[in-house]
Each structure stands twice: as C-alpha cells, then as structure tokens.
Amino acid sequence: MISIIQVYGVMLLKSMGNTLLLCVLSLLFAMVIGLIIALFNVGKNRVLNFIGTLFVDAVRGVPLIVLAYFVYFGVPQAAKMLNVSGFRLSALTAGIIALSMNCGAYMAEIIRAGIESVDKGQMEASRSLGLSYGKSMRLIIIPQAIRTMIPSIINQFIITLKDTSILSVIGFPELVNTAKNVAGNTFMNLQVWAIVGIMYMVVIITLSKVAKRVERRLKRGQQ
C-alpha cells in the first residue's frame, strides 16, 4: 500500500483534481440550467412548461452513462453527417455537458419544489405592492426557497461528485479511470480501490461538513 502511494500518489491526486474540476464546472452549469428550467416549470406559460417538462423527463429518463456516450461519440458523428467540419469534443467538454445536463435536471426539480414550498401569499403580497413577477421571484420567493433547498442541493452535489466516476468510460482521466490503469499495472486491486474509496470519502465528508456549517449560518441569518 505504501509503495503504491509512493509511486502513484501524485498521479492519483492529480486525477482527483480532474474529478473536482469536472464536478465543480458541471455543478456551476447545472445550477444555471436548473434555475432556468425550474422557472420554466413554475410559470404559467404552457410552451415553457412543455420545454421544461420535456427536458427533465428526457434527461432523467436516460442513464448518465448513455448520455455520456451519446454526447461524446454520438454528437460528433451527427456533426460529421451534417458536414460540419472541424467539430471536436474533448472528453472533458463532453463530460461537463453530460454531467451538467444530468445534474441540471435534478437541480431543476429541487429548485421547483423549493419555489413551490414558499407560501402563495408571499407572491400575492409582493404583486399587490406593484412589484413585477420577476422582481417578486428574485427578491421574495427565491431567497426563501433557497433555505428549504439547501439540504437537497448539497445531496445533489455529492451525487454529482460521485457520478463523475461514470465518465471514466469516455476516457477522461478522472480518479476512477486513473485508478483502473494503476490497478491494471500493479495487480494490487485491493490496495488501489481502498485508497480511491478513502479519497472520495475524505472529499465528500469534508464537503458535507462545510455545507452543514453554511446551512446553519444561513438559518441563523434569517431568524
């Protein structure tokens, strides 16, 4: 075990960095996608409702691994068929697209539920003062919705962090992909996967501890 850490430690840490990069970028895009789709779904516009529902149903209805294959292998092929020359998709880009779509769909549902959990009277009071729908959402509804959404969002963050491992299948050198190579080279499966497991655990437990603290602070600020 010590020897693996000595020889492959830096490599594994670097790929953990790749995992985190993939995760953080995907989460950022997922938040934006989630907010937009959630706003599509809570509004009264039928066309936007339809688009929002379609997106959530489609993305949630497909396993992430299929979505990843589709984006990484399928989309460039489509580009070729349409004679778009020079279209290239790196494993990182494809991974971020697939993961942000996947996470975005779940995020949309979390945000929608959060918005709907705010008492209807809040929107009515805000509108009765003459504030527009958009301003009411931004100033009154969303700030209150965030409070109830935080535990679910943290949960989704953790799921997305772990889901980055699925993207090893398209060859992006994140932690699992690298570990596979290390295990293949050394035949020390027990040690390698134990180390990788612990690495994930450390990051995730740290993340949830930080999140708990943020959650507590937000609650305090509102009392």
Binding site: D119, G121, Q122, E124, A125, S126, S128, I140, P143, Q144, R147, Q222
Partner: peptide, 12 residues
C-alpha cells in the same frame, strides 16, 4: 394597497 388575512409579511 392590500392587507391579507395571514399578513404575508416577508419573513427574510
């Protein structure tokens, strides 16, 4: 102006 039964003050 409107005043509601359940006040609907902004709690945050």
């Amino acid at each position: 102006g409107m005043v509601f039964q359940h006040f609907n003050l902004f709690p945050h």
